[in-house]
Every structure is written in C-alpha cells, then in structure tokens.
C-alpha cells in the first residue's frame, strides 16, 4: 500500500465487498491485542519515509510505515529526538506506535504518544481521507480527532501520516526532573478494550460503518 489515495481505494473496495482487513505496520507485534477476524492484510510497511522535517520549528512529518529507527537516526543528525521509546523492535513503525499508544520510559517526563502528535492523515472506514491537526505545536481548532485515533488500534481509521513534536537532546535533565509524572508502568500501551460502550460503539458505527477495520482486536468488557 502506498499513499493516501491507494489506501483509501483499498478500504473503499473492502467496505463495498464486506471484506474485513487486518491493518499492519511491519508486523513485528502481530500478537498484540485480541485476535483479528480478518484474512486480508492491509500493510503500511511500504508507505514509509520522512515527508517534512523542520528542525528549527521542532516538528517532523513522516508516513506511518516509517520505522522508529529511521526517525531516530534522522533526528539525531540534528541532535534532536521524538519522545517515543516503546518496548520492542526499533524496526516497529511509527504508525503502529501511535495507533496503539505504546510508550516507554520517556513517558514519565514527556508523556505518551498522545502528548507528541500534532497532526495526522487518516483514512476512515468509509474511505474518507481526513487531516485533523496541523504542523504547529499548539492548536485547538475543531474537535480532537487526533486523540481519538491515538490508541484506537486501527479500528476507527488507518493512520497514514503523522506530524510530531520534536525535542532537542541538549535539554538539561535537571530542569525538568520536577515534572516527572506517576505512570502506572514503565512501559505499556492503551488497552484495546471497549469501555464506555455506548459512546465507543457509536464511534465505531460512524468511523467504521462496514465493520472492516481490525474487527475483533478490541475486547468487549461491558
């Protein structure tokens, strides 16, 4: 899969035919979540690469299939980084990290992926391509579709592109030590379960009307 229009076409086709899709990055963590009831895979592995990097604005935009390794190496050349350090393979993708809201030790000081993402491109279950957020570090224009998609495990849309907040590695630890937050664990992810069933199911119906995006990956608890 390559590019928003191709992803959108694939999703529209699957929706029309009622074929469920398993959304996959590089497939380094396929046992995550509950098992997906889908034979067909939509892989974002080849939809990779950094699209825009503005070191002085401290923002970077990359396709979902970009590996964390590539992102880290690119930013390191300017002595910068993004606060994404989930457990697991450094060849895992940016898209999967954000879709699962996976975090590591950096979260105690900098927050989870939810605190890093500034903008996105997402293909919804009806094939619509949406672009919430932007490339600025502060933005409250419109309802927050970005937070909705982070940690939704691909069930509300397929994230194809992400703009992130970038940080300098020169930042002094002792100027931020007092900001350390209590985290439930040193690493983790957003649990793929359905809580608040009424609202959550209403969201699923609206964002995945054909029920084709990673069906089954979210456990029902209520």
């Amino acid at each position: 899969m390559h590019g928003d229009t191709e992803v959108a076409a694939a999703i529209r086709e699957a929706g029309a035919a009622g074929i469920p899709l398993r959304i996959v990055g590089r497939g380094t963590w396929l046992n995550a979540g509950a098992s997906v009831a889908a034979e067909t895979t939509l892989s974002l592995r080849d939809d990779a690469g950094i699209r825009a990097y503005a070191p002085d604005d401290l923002t970077v935009t990359a396709r979902a299939g970009t590996t964390l390794r590539e992102l880290t190496e690119t930013l390191a050349r300017r002595d910068q980084w993004v606060a994404l350090d989930p457990e697991g393979d450094p060849d895992g993708t940016l898209g999967a990290t954000v879709a699962t809201c996976s975090y590591g030790a950096a979260a105690a000081l900098f927050g989870t992926p939810r605190d890093q993402v500034l903008g996105m491109t997402v293909v919804l279950g009806n094939g619509d391509i949406i672009r919430p957020g932007g490339k600025v570090v502060k933005n409250v224009a419109g309802f927050d579709l970005i937070r909705l998609m982070i940690g939704a495990w691909g069930t509300l849309g397929v994230i194809t592109e992400i703009t992130l907040r970038v940080r300098s590695r020169a930042m002094r630890g002792d100027s931020i030590a007092h900001m350390r937050r209590q985290m439930p664990a040193s690493h983790g992810y957003r649990e793929p379960v359905i809580v608040n069933a009424k609202i959550s199911n209403a969201l699923r119906q609206r964002f995945d009307p054909f029920g084709i995006l990673n069906p089954g990956i979210m456990r029902d608890v209520e």
Binding site: C101, D144, R147, L148, G188, R190, E191, N196
Partner: peptide
C-alpha cells in the same frame, strides 16, 4: 485517575470540545 489508559481516548476527545 491512576493514569492508566484503556479503550478509546474519550477524555482526550472531550478536552477542547
């Protein structure tokens, strides 16, 4: 309240609504 994360981020969606 304990900082855990489960299910869709409805809190994130509510903030700024």
């Amino acid at each position: 309240r304990d900082g855990g994360m489960a299910g869709y981020d409805l809190l994130g969606a509510f903030i700024g609504s």
